[in-house]
Design a binder for these strands. Structure first.
Length: 281
DNA sequence: AAAGATGCCTGTAAGC
DNA sequence: TGCTTACAGGCATCTT
């Protein structure tokens, strides 16, 4: 399931090949994503040039220009199982290849593949294209984890008087974006914090450790070119194997890599939560 | 207001 | 073995 590092890796993978390219054709073979893919895209996209590919949280934003004027922005989310990749136009379309962009003067076409269809592809026009951060999906998002705005002091200040478990707190997109279930489990282990501990009862010092671990883990994953358990495919078509060591996620019942205590699994808000009862408090 | 539950969806794994 | 069921997860949206 694409977490933030996979989305960033996708952005870096596709950007060099599509920035500056003009769309020759767009085809939606199946519009039934999280929200229906807008009907007008087939008519609207050809002739527009992908000016830039940016990212906010796990959303990819493709700015579409006509000459030097921004016409609209494609907002794409990979959901649980989505991928954007480049391939030769000769490549047979696979099951769940839902969207296809063809370009002028390019050896590649771009395909959106999404078996579970939790992803989306929306079109922002007018004011929303100019200022995508005002879009309802982006307006309330917290800071990017890899920016200076996000640090232990931010977490500490926001968490005062909150009874919410720390795991839910760091997975809240209004607190910080890009911390999915796998990374939440991992960074809490690395920080020695018990996942059910109330966010309001964690010290500033521990929040600084936690914020640093979030930055370190996400940065390392991006540096490795993205990680996955199952569904991610790099934009060049090669699988992106999960190379980071998972200390707790998926290891319930096995022994802690630090102290050999058996790792415990509980469910928090329906999500698999694994921790070391010895190392995490 | 805030926190928890729900629904969307299909590939995979576990169970009978 | 083959069929059925449970589970995984991001996240908007509904419910309490």
């Amino acid at each position: 399931m694409p977490e933030l590092p996979e989305v960033e890796t996708t952005r870096r993978g596709i950007a060099p090949s599509i920035e500056g390219r003009t769309i020759a054709a767009f085809t939606a073979h199946d519009r039934r994503l999280r929200w229906p893919v807008p009907e007008q895209l087939e008519a609207l996209l050809p002739g527009l040039t992908i000016h830039s590919v940016t990212r906010r949280a796990k959303y990819l934003l493709l700015q579409c220009h006509r000459v030097d004027t921004l016409i609209g922005t494609l907002l794409i989310h990979l959901g649980m199982s989505g991928s954007l990749r480049l391939c030769s136009p000769d490549t047979p379309r696979k099951t769940h290849d839902h969207l296809i962009w063809r370009f002028h003067d390019s050896d590649w076409e771009m395909r959106f593949h999404d078996p579970r269809r939790f992803g989306c592809c929306l079109w922002l026009s007018d004011q929303q294209a100019q200022q995508p951060n005002l879009h309802p999906l982006l307006a309330k998002l917290g800071p990017e984890p890899l920016t200076a705005r996000f640090d232990g002091d931010w977490l500490y200040t926001l968490s005062r008087n909150k009874n919410q478990p720390i795991k839910s707190f760091i997975m809240d997109n209004q607190v910080v974006v890009g911390v999915g279930n796998i990374y939440a489990n991992e960074v809490l282990f690395l920080s020695g914090i018990h996942p059910t501990r109330a966010a309001g009862r964690i010290s500033q010092a521990r929040y600084r450790v936690l914020a640093d671990n979030i930055k370190t883990v996400l940065s390392a994953a991006i540096a490795q070119g993205g990680t996955t358990l199952r569904d991610f495919v790099n934009s060049d078509g090669n699988p992106g194997y999960f190379q980071q060591t998972l200390h707790v996620y998926g290891r319930a019942g096995q022994s802690c890599l630090v102290c050999t205590t058996t790792l415990t699994e509980i469910r928090m808000s329906g999500r698999s939560t694994v921790f070391c009862p010895q190392c995490q408090h």
